[in-house]
Nucleic acid binder design. Structure first.
Length: 938
RNA sequence: GGGGGAGUGGCGGAAUUGGCAGACGCGCAUGACUUAGGAUCAUGUGGAGAAAUCCGUGUGGGUUCGAGUCCCACCUUCCCCA
């Protein structure tokens, strides 16, 4: 029986009313305003800021809602939490929208921000909106430009003529990582890229390559560190100089100097400056033809594995500096001028590509490393030898061990590098795959690069007091291949800061990755005008303690932001912060942490994919022309059985499931074959619920698990889900449905479990405590025990970002409270209050509402996290699991804390155990007290 | 080709890191209440079997009193880089 009085006050759960009310209240109370409070430990939680594309989609929710739950959890655990939000607002889509819809990029961007900000608030996040930063605000990009100038002053920004990847469709240059796939297409639009020579701005990220390889100071996923490691691609080896017979030096880089004695020929890139010089008269024509041909091929065509390698002998020879052998010089297009030195030494015995090349052109192969006790023969070996071995044919090094391992850790490599250095023919060399960061974009909607060009004084930085260099709003931004700023006279023409003479501005804008490389600092003081951030705020909040976001940023954003923090350090930008820290008595250790890394911990969430769906079952009537059905009428039916209800009009007719849809056809799967039906202007559609407006777009087709996209029609709109179930339910479902790191397809059935859970919680609390008069001491203790087990489970889960098990733990606790019919009001209240506290990070609105309905005045979100008490959680009785030879045979209830002897005695009394022992004496008994398990080996 | 993940019921996933496999939820089944059920409630739900019991975490081997978890080989699959 439930308490009568409480039952009267019971109301239906109405999420939209509750949520809008609390949203307003929290804002009024400034509940989420984070200010410096030195009495508490700080926790800077950060989640990647969105691009303001127009609508907040379910992926944003999936990334942000769990991050928010974690931040709220930390706040209840006594931390002073900063959890800011902003917008990465510069970028190409704004310009595309401008071109397509005749709206100004600024108008479009800021309208989107306005809308998305409201949508974000609906989510119930604890974002401190007073710290919001928008990268396209002049008060933001002023400091982006300021940082550029600092880098420029410190020789970390420079300009050079450089071939760049250019997307002819987006009409812009692309960074290396924005070109994707085997076909080398534009990341954004899929168009194949072309090469273009342009004067470009670069950041000297390669200067930090080694430092960026240090991953000691933070807790990042192994995967991200590996990806960055590969991306930087450090290789240790040697630069060795060969000479042509005419005495011209050819420098090569090799990661395997231990194979120098096996270099039987050299290969130059066709573009190598010495190519023509070494070419003999007889080979002149062949070499010229080859160079022409190579010039027409793309880099991919030239280097793709599996492609047959081609080359031409130049007729020239070089001398191998370690053994004075005369070796032929070839040219081949698989050697690229832009990589390394544009020349290689070829060691066919120990390199697959060189081996293939040597066999094809009948070049000499000399093994210089072989397994012990085996003799390799260059003429007969079937493939290059790449395994561990001992050096041979290598002069002084014969007999030295040389493994397959690369780098200085390999004794053979180390010894040979020392040898060539001593001999003066080579030196230790470290090569990186990482290139300098190209930041120039020939685009309008970005931060202008603050440089002017004066005919008298040359390139001049814009003085700091003239920042920001503002983007003019009245521009023509149709794509021309040049920056639209170039045709804007008011922007372009300026005066030289040095001589006051006429000058022109740099019209390139900065890569938006630059804006997002330092936003974590701007959040601290988005309106501060004394620098990029307020040192007082920075001294307290930095660095970021917990970062969350998508794995897709592993090698771009996350590498760039690390570079930024290190470059900023070297430009002295943190000096004022250090001063403040010192004044406040920070230890050297505290200060050191500031410089480790921008984000100390990182967790990557996965992706929400589209829900698989069956296609509509349809009746299509029309006329067959060849094998194509020209459709006059398409009728959606519930099942095949209903097909007869669709009156026939006498024409051709097909019934089946729609498995595919294009702009003007649908494919129908029938028992016999798949039929393609083409629709025309006169085709009528009958789709239940759509009436006369129904069209081809309303026909659902079969869909597997795929990324959400508008064209596939599998997009889940969070606003609709919120309208249906409330924000708490959507948040909780996203946390419950998958492992956060993994993600998965949306399941509109699966959300029901969360709906039921939330409704049950609402009922339990609004119904009030059970009305009992009998003795409740045992049931009270039971409920308290389960409550504390719940505390343990939810706490551990949230700490570990295991949101799905946190929600599972909350559901278990709800089940326990629901089942507890005979408990005292006090025990009930303890359990329910604890449950609401544990729910607060996950479902902030309903937790707050019910907390207040229990009579509290303070917000649930400002309470302390419940503390687990082991003694309350301990059970009086436990189930002893009895195994015989490792298999579970019996379970018996025994008092908790039973001794090993007693457990053993109890186990041996079990009939089942005796049966399985078949009279044998136990050889051994293993008792695991903490698992209440005993294993009898007999 | 190289590097890194991941394979557990019909499905999403748990499993205290070597100790009761399948928590929690979806779905499903049976029943109840219902004009109705895509609402709600109750019970059940890895497979086989009447039961005792046997089988079971991609496959094959190994270590161990004990393996989803550790080791070796293989298969499948996803991501990243070529």
């Amino acid at each position: 029986m439930r308490n009568q009085q409480q039952q009267i006050t019971r109301t239906e759960y109405n999420p939209s009313e509750i949520e809008s009310r609390w949203m307003t209240q929290w804002e009024k109370d400034k509940q989420n305003r984070s200010v410096i409070d030195r009495s508490k430990p700080k926790h800077y939680a950060l989640t990647m800021l969105p691009y303001p594309s127009g609508e907040l989609h379910i992926g944003h929710w999936y990334a942000m809602a769990p991050s928010d739950a974690r931040a709220r959890f930390m706040r209840m655990n006594g931390y002073n939490v900063l959890f800011p939000m902003g917008f990465d607002a510069f970028g190409l889509p704004a310009e595309n929208a401008a071109i397509k819809r005749q709206v100004h990029p600024k108008t479009w961007t800021y309208a989107n921000i306005e809308r998305m900000r409201q949508q974000l608030k609906m989510m119930g996040t604890m974002f401190d909106w007073e710290r919001e930063a928008v990268t396209s605000d002049p008060e933001y990009y002023k400091w982006t430009q300021w940082l550029f100038l600092k880098f420029f002053e410190n020789d970390l920004a420079y300009k050079k003529l450089s071939p760049v990847d250019f997307c002819p469709s987006c009409n812009t240059t692309l960074a290396r990582e924005q070109v994707v796939g085997e076909d080398r297409v534009c990341e954004r639009c899929g168009t194949p890229v072309i090469k273009k020579e342009l004067d470009q701005w670069f950041f000297r990220i390669t200067k930090y390559a080694d430092e960026l390889l240090e991953f000691d100071h933070f807790r990042w996923p192994e995967k991200v560190m590996t990806m960055q490691d590969n991306w930087i691609g450090r290789s240790e080896g040697a630069y060795v100089t060969f000479y042509t017979e005419d005495g011209d030096p050819i420098e090569i880089f090799t990661t395997r100097p231990d194979t120098l004695w096996g270099a039987t020929f050299m290969v130059l890139a066709p573009e190598h400056p010495l190519t023509l010089k070494v070419t003999s008269a007889e080979q002149h024509d062949a070499v010229h033809d080859y160079i022409d041909e190579a010039g027409r091929k793309s880099e991919i065509d030239r280097t793709a594995e599996g492609k047959e390698k081609s080359g031409v002998f130049t007729g020239g020879y070089a001398i191998n500096p370690v053994n004075d052998e005369r070796i032929p010089i070839w040219i081949a297009d698989y050697v690229l001028m832009g990589y390394g030195t544009g020349a290689i030494m070829a060691v066919p015995a120990h390199d697959e590509r060189d081996f293939e090349f040597a066999r094809k052109y009948g070049l000499k192969i000399i093994p210089v490393r072989q397994p012990e006790g085996v003799e390799l023969n260059g003429d007969t070996m079937p493939e290059a030898f790449l395994e561990d071995g001992v050096m041979v044919n290598s002069g002084p090094f014969d007999g030295t061990f040389s493994g397959s391992e690369k780098g200085l850790k390999n004794p053979g490599i180390k010894a040979v590098i020392e040898y060539v250095e001593e001999k003066g023919v080579g030196r230790l060399g470290i090569n990186y795959r990482l290139r300098d960061w190209l930041i120039s974009r020939q685009r309008y909607w970005g931060a202008p690069i603050p440089i002017v060009y004066c005919e008298q004084c040359g390139m001049q930085p814009v003085p700091y007091d003239q920042l920001p260099v503002e983007l003019p709003e009245d521009v023509e931004f149709m794509p021309t291949g040049e920056s639209p700023l170039r045709s804007h006279a008011g922007f372009l023409n300026t005066t030289c800061p040095a001589c006051d003479g006429p000058a022109t501005r740099e019209t390139d804008t900065m890569d938006t990755f630059m804006c997002s490389s330092w936003y974590q600092y701007r959040y601290l003081s988005p309106h501060y005008d004394g620098g990029p951030f307020d040192p007082v705020e920075a001294a307290y909040w930095l660095p970021v303690d917990q970062y969350t976001g998508g794995i897709e940023h592993a090698t771009m954003h996350l590498l760039y932001t690390r570079f930024f923090s290190k470059a900023m350090r070297d430009c002295g930008i943190f000096d004022p912060t250090v001063e403040v820290m010192k004044e406040q008595g920070a230890t050297d250790e505290d200060i050191e942490i500031l410089f480790y890394e921008p984000m100390l911990a990182l967790v990557n969430q996965g992706m929400i994919l589209g829900e698989p769906q069956e296609g509509h079952t349809v009746v299509v009537e029309g006329t067959f022309v060849d094998h194509k059905l020209i459709a006059d009428r398409v009728t959606v039916i519930n099942s095949y059985a209903d097909a007869d209800d669709v009156a026939s009009n006498g024409g051709d007719r097909v019934v089946g499931e729609v498995i595919k849809r294009t702009d003007n056809t649908i494919t129908i799967e029938t028992p016999h074959r798949d039929v393609v039906a083409e629709v025309h202007d006169g085709t009528t559609f009958e789709v239940p619920g759509f009436g006369p407006t129904a069209g081809l777009q309303q026909i659902k087709y079969r869909l597997g698990i795929e990324k959400m996209s508008k064209s596939k029609g599998n997009v889940v709109a969070p606003d609709e889900q919120v309208a249906l179930y409330g924000a708490d339910t959507v948040r909780a479902y996203l946390m419950f449905a998958f492992r956060w790191e993994k993600g998965g397809p949306w399941d509109s059935e699966g959300i029901k479990g969360v709906v039921r859970w939330i409704n049950d919680v609402w009922e339990i609390v609004t119904d009030g405590p059970p009305d009992v008069s009998i003795d409740t001491s045992k049931t009270d203790r039971d409920l308290a025990r389960q409550t504390h087990l719940g505390i343990l489970r939810v706490t551990d889960s949230l700490r570990e970002f295991s949101f799905n098990t946190a929600v599972a733990g909350l559901m278990e606790l709800k089940n326990a409270v629901q089942r507890a019919e005979n408990v005292s009001a006090e025990a009930w209240r303890n359990a329910v209050e604890t449950m609401l506290l544990l729910m607060a990070p996950v479902t902030p609105f309903i937790s707050e509402e019910l907390w207040h309905r229990l009579g509290h005045e303070d917000s649930v979100h400002l309470q302390s996290w419940p503390v687990y008490d082991e003694s309350i959680a301990a059970a009086d009785e436990v189930t002893l699991v009895i195994q015989v030879n490792g298999k579970v045979r019996d379970r018996i209830n025994v008092p908790a804390g039973i001794s090993e002897e007693d457990a053993r005695a109890a186990a041996m009394e079990s009939e089942v155990v005796q049966r399985h022992l078949q009279g044998r004496e136990p050889k051994k008994v293993i008792y695991i007290a903490e698992r209440a398990m005993i294993n009898i080996v007999g």
